[in-house]
Design a protein around this nucleic acid. Sequence first.
DNA 1: TAGCCATATGTAAATGTTTACATTTTTATC
DNA 2: GATAAAAATGTAAACATTTACATATGGCTA
Lengths: 337, 337
Amino acid sequence: MATIKDVARIAGVSVATVSRVANNGPKVSQKTKDKVAKIMLDLGYSPNANARALVTQKSTTVGVVIPDLTDPFFASLANGVDKVARQESRQLLLSTGMVSADSERQAINLLLERRCDIMVVHSKKLSDDELITLSQKIPGLVFIDRYIEAIAERCIWLDNTEGGKIAARHLLALNHTSFACISSQYQIEDPGLRLQGFQSELDASGHQLDPTLIQYGEPDLQGGEVAAQNLLATGKPFSALFVYNDAMAIGAISTLEDNGFKVPSDISVIGFDDVLLSRYSNPKLTTLNYPVEKMAMLATKLAMKLANDEFVNSNDTHHKHVPRLVKRESTSFNKSL
Amino acid sequence: MATIKDVARIAGVSVATVSRVANNGPKVSQKTKDKVAKIMLDLGYSPNANARALVTQKSTTVGVVIPDLTDPFFASLANGVDKVARQESRQLLLSTGMVSADSERQAINLLLERRCDIMVVHSKKLSDDELITLSQKIPGLVFIDRYIEAIAERCIWLDNTEGGKIAARHLLALNHTSFACISSQYQIEDPGLRLQGFQSELDASGHQLDPTLIQYGEPDLQGGEVAAQNLLATGKPFSALFVYNDAMAIGAISTLEDNGFKVPSDISVIGFDDVLLSRYSNPKLTTLNYPVEKMAMLATKLAMKLANDEFVNSNDTHHKHVPRLVKRESTSFNKSL
DNA sequence: TAGCCATATGTAAATGTTTACATTTTTATC
DNA sequence: GATAAAAATGTAAACATTTACATATGGCTA
């Protein structure tokens, strides 16, 4: 592969001149510019980004850490980061890893080795302390979907508890009185917070949530189906169902309908996240919109500011986001007594 | 940020020794290994991947070129590449760009500048000639979802025509006699091939496809809805509908049902791609499975072999893939005369 | 035509690694 | 304890750039 020296030699100029042409530098005559450009083309010269990064000490990538791309939620996240990255003509460097402390740590380390100065990280398993230490070392490091008091200015997060409350209020407003929940069996904090918010709002309005009407499962279609079966197996009636996420909610609806319950006329179902799926299901899903892509874009912009050493006042930027209720077809007014 | 020299100085050894420790090199005593490792940790030393790549002349990334990550199809593609990349402890470098010749060219160039030696590229707009030239320059370049005779050994593609035929055969076997189609309005070859295959199979069995019962639209939910409305507006009856992709198919179903047609009892609908959505819709969609993720994995492995200068016999690896019919709930036997 | 400025070009150091080769140290053998 | 062999460590070049600084070139003005 042709180097800058090859170009210089053949063009009969110094490497400095070639470099200036390659970077559209300021002081170079049109004549040599043309001459050098032609030779670059002939040789198929392509500047080596590694050498460039080494000498300029700046990266032209944006790093993202997520578990994987199969989950549409994370695909949206990555897409948000990519949008902003592209605006700044940077490329996405993707570091995936299953959700374990080790793999999350490794994913971040790999980005660090590449001297990626801007990182948007989705970490659920690393400890607060470790993340705090990391963020002291990496100015342009921002966390998404996580809140840590000590580094609040670097955390872009969703108020899951409030989401649970909004769901409860919606169902209460629809005259429901008997509730069930499907949650995720994974030990991350989100499911707990969503459930807690839901429950606290029920409590506040004098309603009860029977503990046996809370079922846990894999956070996907099948998990929702199974959990709904378990719910029905209790034999206890309920008219409103709050589900951890949209995929599970759609699975639950399918089980409910298979068992002769109509959604929403017999049972209202509300999901969480508002991923693409929720608009394609039938009935279309009422859910809480989690604006991941928007949040990811903000996170990336924030990371860029921080990397640039710009002062960021966490009060005037909205680091906390509240999910928005999206009413579709899976919830309706409860007519029974 | 601490460099290898800092570590060497403080540990009282040469940079070569530090390098050997960092790379788990062969000839270094346990004692110095421990000593140096400790200092690396103390200093938070992180080897500079750019410098490394420069001197070793090898990359530790795998490049992918796709339009964006919003589309689940491309997210699956990227995910397949990522899976293989991770197995080889490489990271994904993502180069997105809308589908235009310029942006596709630029996306590939950016990967080239990073000296990415393995690339999986989804290009619809660059000419055959340009891609042929590129692949002469880049040994580890592989194209997915595209077939070019002259570089067949680097093309992993789906037989769209055959897909259309399979769909037709399925509907014919279900006793259907009046057909409609929804295609994509975009000028890439896939929609044309799918339609052509469908039509040729109908012709072969002595059936007709009324040209006014072919409608074109945006390849998404709304596009499907609109196209279905246009179909109904013709006033001509049909009992079987072949749709360009799953999203459009789901949109079409929703319009059909809104207009009083039951799917599948009144009209059978078959989609294409078998994205996540098709399992979540109601009725669940009968469709043609496009094994993108698997193909992306194979493409990545192929690119790795080619980059390694290994001989690849395009006959013994399956570069052409045939979509598989997935029967779900949106097609059924036609009982009318 | 000398002198001056602006513009264009060149020189060389620096970036952080790896690795072939050279040198030193340790271990084993007699 | 001398010697050889093996193991550990060090030296220095190479990788492909950018850029501060130095130098050369050309056009004006007086």
